[in-house]
Design a protein around this nucleic acid. Structure first.
Lengths: 205, 205, 205, 205
DNA sequence: TATGAATGAGTTTTCATTCAT
DNA sequence: GATGAATGAAAACTCATTCAT
């Protein structure tokens, strides 16, 4: 693959992402994306085979990019309050980059196109796994671990996240998502205390 | 409106719902819905003005129907464990009727069609209000009330619900949603205990 | 035909005329006209058989109405300057009533629908005949009569009229039509003089 | 633009013109035009964006073509009798090419589609300007110039032309238009004499 | 690699008209 | 006479995709 080609692929991926956030999943057509990329429509099919594949490639790109960033920021975090702080920053990055909306559009959009469901779901599982990792670290050895399976917890976290984003996108404003974040921050000490006490209980038992 | 017309409107609404669950939001075209209803395509426009309006009417129909049912079942519930039990039944009804998928498709689908966002969101607010009512009853006078605003709680509940449904729809199986339900059931006594103890604190103060 | 029916027919004819002036020939659909008349669409077909027939009936109505008025005003006119004065008033009435635009829309519109051509043309011939009558009176016995056939003159007059109206309608303002009227008024004495001198010549020869 | 594309555009423009003359403005649909051009319907939108744009492009094409021809033929003409001779030939060309009917259909048709009015009118102004130029040359320095503004004269000429064409198209035969031409030819010497004498007056004054 | 042109199936919507009541 | 419902054909336009160059 020559440089030009890589450049074009890149332009298309970026354009797909932008189109997804600006026109929604159903507005992300070959024409619109190619126009955004200032590139010939046919190149989408040349490089990606189909619009769906480009969209998935775009999802891959953001997803990997962001997952790496999430990994590095959340690597050493063990307390819920630290988690909330870090998530706050990461979330803000997601907003600024616009990638959060693109991903939400893909997830919601894919649910309306049976053919895309499986492939989009596959791209969500790394996130669930990552959530399991982070949450596992946080609740392992606490009583919480005995009450809820970490799998459930991870699934719930990701589901919660997409639910918030879906409603946020519908409403067109982030006020309520933001309010939830602040509620999380306020609750953080309590959660940490519970986890703390819980681990005592665990140890004692 | 004559009987025939009411019948046709009904057929169309039901067909829209069914098409939404079977072909997804983006497969819910005038043609598909009319075929499902075994009715002339043009009748969609005669009775509803546009496909979008039919879809919204369908959403209205289910939404009102289900909200009434939720109201009557959750009217006298004050304990979390009772809530989980009742929700379990209601949720199973939702699944059997297929309405749950239709609503999820509309909510997710609308997010990809800017023109629909506001109108679908409007139809979600009664649910948020209802959640506020039920959760408010459950939490009022407890320490939880002091830690999280009931508005946030209600929004979070609805968001959580749609998040679960979106991932469930992507995955094409309800296993994880079901697992969460059971986790909820297991947690219920703890939650009730917390709410209980919390209200003591409230009373003591 | 009962009173109600006559009333409905009338409403429809008036609505057709109004729709023609407000939405143009191609905007004069059964739906639009019925809406304007606040009447059921099907009544158009009940009373007139087809939209085209309603449109023709409307053309008939205005045409007869106006032709009668033109006849009475131009009955005793022999001088071109008097003709210009009278026409000025009649034309202003045509504008105010909006009928002029309706007729222009019918004539122009019919030219784009082969099936209507003959029937609209038939409705124009009384006007050509009337023009022949008036102009005949004015030029008979003058040299003009020897130079141009009155048939040509009448046809030219009506053609000129519709040409002006077509361009006026395109432009959306009557300024140039008005300017032509004033030019006509300024020329009138000259024309009258020519007709006068011409008749001398005619008598002398 | 490649050769193939130019060819297709050309075919479409020619087909639009032909369809306009054969089926009238309201029969000039995407389907009909594409069929006439033996070309895929979608190409109309690919190349012209909309049916209206194709129709306008067709109008442009004929109009520019014919205007150039009119310009070259009428460049050195100063006498009315010469004008009539030249116009006779040009008009016959217009008839043979069929372009005259197409233009008339566009002008009349546009009057029924508010959205087209302005754009068609714009395409008529070069003709009015050209008429002003030719008539100005003919009339300047004569008494006619003092009696009628050249703007009025030019507008009148074009209006007259379209009026004749509209009635001709309605009637489906050119007999009366032809008769008018011959009347013009018979009147030409008189008109030239008037213009002549008029210029004496002008010089004397 | 890239491009402009082309394709055919699909979309929503509107049309005139008919029909049963 | 009048109405609401229904119909089938047709409208303009967009879609993802392919093809020749």
């Amino acid at each position: 693959m020559g440089k030009a080609a890589a450049g074009t692929r890149d332009r298309l991926v970026r354009a797909a992402l932008k189109t997804l956030t600006q026109h929604g999943f159903s507005g992300a057509t070959a024409r619109t994306i190619a126009a955004e990329a200032r590139v010939n429509q046919a190149l989408i099919f040349y490089h990606f085979g189909s619009v769906d594949h480009l969209l998935l490639a775009a999802l891959d790109a953001t997803s990997e990019d962001r997952l790496a960033r999430y990994r590095s920021w959340l690597a050493d975090i063990n307390k819920f309050s630290d988690l909330v702080d870090a998530m706050d920053r990461l979330y803000k990055e997601d907003i600024v980059s616009g990638h959060i909306t693109a991903v939400q559009e893909m997830v919601a959009g894919a649910s309306s196109v049976p053919a895309l469901r499986r492939q989009v779901l596959e791209r969500m599982t790394p996130w669930v796994a990552f959530a399991r990792e982070v949450l596992g670290r946080m609740v392992s050895g606490t009583v919480v671990e005995k009450m809820v399976s970490i799998d459930d917890l991870a699934f719930a976290a990701v589901a919660f996240y997409f639910g918030i984003e879906t409603l946020t996108n519908l409403a067109g404003d982030r006020a309520q998502a933001q309010a939830l974040f602040e509620a999380g921050r306020r609750l953080a000490p309590v959660v940490d205390a519970v986890l703390q006490s819980a681990s005592w209980v665990g140890e004692t038992a």
